[in-house]
Amino acid sequence: QTVHVKGVQYHFPNPEEAVKFALKVAKDLGGRVEFHGDEIHVE
């Protein structure tokens, strides 16, 4: 599972961890989380 944050990719073997990370980052940055297939983008 890959999380993209402002052009940087973070790889997580566990999808659940990836989602938790993405939600935390989005909250910290005041952004939103978008799901694109296997990828999660924080915009």
Results as ranks from 00 to 15, higher is better:
residue 1 Q to D: 05
residue 1 Q to F: 15
residue 1 Q to G: 09
residue 2 T to C: 03
residue 2 T to N: 05
residue 2 T to I: 13
residue 3 V to L: 02
residue 3 V to N: 00
residue 5 V to R: 02
residue 5 V to I: 13
residue 5 V to N: 03
residue 5 V to P: 00
residue 6 K to P: 02
residue 6 K to W: 13
residue 6 K to F: 15
residue 8 V to A: 09
residue 8 V to M: 11
residue 8 V to T: 09
residue 8 V to H: 10
residue 8 V to D: 06
residue 9 Q to N: 07
residue 9 Q to K: 14
residue 10 Y to F: 11
residue 10 Y to L: 04
residue 10 Y to Q: 02
residue 11 H to I: 09
residue 12 F to I: 02
residue 12 F to M: 03
residue 12 F to E: 00
residue 13 P to W: 11
residue 13 P to S: 14
residue 14 N to M: 05
residue 14 N to I: 06
residue 14 N to Q: 05
residue 16 E to Y: 11
residue 16 E to V: 11
residue 16 E to C: 06
residue 16 E to A: 12
residue 17 E to Q: 10
residue 17 E to S: 09
residue 18 A to H: 00
residue 18 A to V: 00
residue 18 A to Y: 00
residue 18 A to Q: 02
residue 19 V to S: 05
residue 19 V to R: 11
residue 19 V to K: 10
residue 20 K to L: 11
residue 21 F to N: 02
residue 21 F to H: 03
residue 22 A to C: 03
residue 23 L to M: 13
residue 23 L to K: 10
residue 23 L to F: 14
residue 24 K to N: 10
residue 24 K to G: 10
residue 24 K to Q: 14
residue 25 V to N: 04
residue 25 V to D: 01
residue 26 A to W: 03
residue 27 K to F: 12
residue 27 K to E: 12
residue 27 K to P: 01
residue 28 D to R: 11
residue 28 D to K: 12
residue 29 L to N: 07
residue 29 L to D: 04
residue 29 L to C: 07
residue 30 G to Q: 08
residue 30 G to A: 08
residue 30 G to R: 07
residue 31 G to V: 06
residue 32 R to Q: 08
residue 32 R to M: 08
residue 32 R to W: 15
residue 32 R to C: 05
residue 33 V to M: 07
residue 33 V to S: 01
residue 33 V to C: 08
residue 34 E to G: 06
residue 34 E to C: 10
residue 34 E to D: 07
residue 35 F to H: 06
residue 35 F to W: 13
residue 35 F to E: 03
residue 35 F to T: 05
residue 37 G to P: 04
residue 38 D to F: 10
residue 38 D to G: 13
residue 39 E to S: 11
residue 39 E to F: 08
residue 40 I to E: 01
residue 41 H to A: 04
residue 42 V to W: 03
residue 42 V to A: 01
residue 42 V to Y: 02
residue 42 V to H: 01
residue 43 E to N: 13
residue 43 E to P: 04
residue 43 E to T: 15
residue 43 E to I: 15
